[in-house]
């Protein structure tokens, strides 16, 4: 049987990358590059992708990569764009590609500055919900209750995940979207769309991480899908402030289907799970109003 998809057959990511088995951030890069094409420059701050892009002189992607220090992917990307434009190149798409630590936490100031100036860049956060490259420490993207190396107690992380999407939305970006690799067509379409828009654009990808979330590496796509089906990670986009839900999960699966497959949530009690379910339900009531 042949399955027809809208996803381009071109491959911008080579097989020789250094990712862990089942890495969601790697699947995400593969689809992103299919949507972005070769006229792209990636600016990568300290994150897993610092390593995955390959040690010198190798590279696992077929586009230019400019590595940057942790706090300044957005500012460096702005500079690349201004430098290219000053030399007459308006066409190249400049993409900052950072993890949740480099986006929610240390890179937030530079990101806010770039969004505020409506810089002509696309900022992508592949959110694997902790500092995974340094070995699983809590970040602003870590959800409440998750175990990390710096939240080792029985309660796990004691604060809710920072609402980065709301922070970005408050900057009134040209385009904002969420994506996750189980929905590859949706992701590729969003990258194509973002590429064609001028001004500040932002995509947050939920990128499951087998060693960080503690699940079998074959379950990445299943967890990516369950995050959407349980309503914990809604797929949406917003163009010039016009909000649209991309996928209505219909009858949502219980959040436990997503949580219980990950050992990082092993210590959650039935009450914890019920509280998370209630939060998700409330969030969906809000979505229903916005959409």
């Amino acid at each position: 049987m042949t399955v027809k998809t809208s996803i381009p057959a071109t491959e911008g990511l080579s097989a020789g990358h250094l990712a862990c088995q089942g890495c969601g951030a790697t699947l995400s890069m593969r689809y992103a590059l299919k949507g972005l094409g070769q006229e792209t420059v990636l600016v990568i701050p300290a994150c897993c992708w610092t390593i995955l892009a390959g040690p010198a002189p190798m590279s696992s992607v077929d586009v230019n990569v400019v590595h940057s220090p942790f706090a300044c992917a957005a500012a460096t990307a702005c500079g690349v764009k201004h430098g290219l434009v000053s030399r007459g190149d308006e066409a190249t798409c400049v993409v900052a590609w950072g993890g949740d630590g480099g986006t929610f936490d240390i890179g937030l100031q530079a990101l806010s500055g770039a969004a505020d100036r409506d810089e002509d860049i696309l900022y992508v956060c592949y959110d694997n919900e902790a500092y995974m490259n340094t070995g699983i420490q809590r970040s602003g993207g870590t959800p409440r209750g998750a175990w990390t190396m710096t939240t080792p107690g029985p309660a796990g992380a004691d604060r809710p995940k920072k609402d980065l999407d709301a922070i970005i939305a408050a900057h009134r970006p040209r385009y904002q979207a969420t994506a996750t690799p189980a929905y590859a067509e949706d992701m590729v379409r969003k990258f194509k769309k973002a590429r064609a828009i001028k001004g500040f654009r932002f995509i947050r990808i939920l990128a499951p991480c087998p060693p960080g979330w503690k699940y079998e590496s074959g379950d990445t796509v299943a967890l990516s899908r369950l995050a959407v089906q349980t309503g914990m990670f809604p797929l949406w986009e917003s163009e010039e402030g016009r909000f649209r839900l991309n996928l209505s999960p219909g009858k949502r699966k219980p959040v436990g289907d997503f949580l219980r497959r990950q050992a990082r949530f092993r210590r959650l009690t039935a009450e914890d799970e019920a509280a998370i379910q209630a939060q998700v339900d409330a969030a969906w009531e809000d979505f229903a109003k916005r959409a």
């Binding site: 706090a71 460096t76 201004h82 430098g83 400049v94 100031q109 530079a110 500055g113």
Partner: peptide, 23 residues
């Protein structure tokens, strides 16, 4: 090009990008 960055750290980061682009 004149970029009104939000900090000195970003000022120099912006120049890293721009200089790498050949400006």
């Amino acid at each position: 090009r004149f970029v009104r960055v939000e900090s000195e750290h970003s000022a120099m980061a912006c120049l890293v990008g721009a200089a790498q682009a050949g400006a």
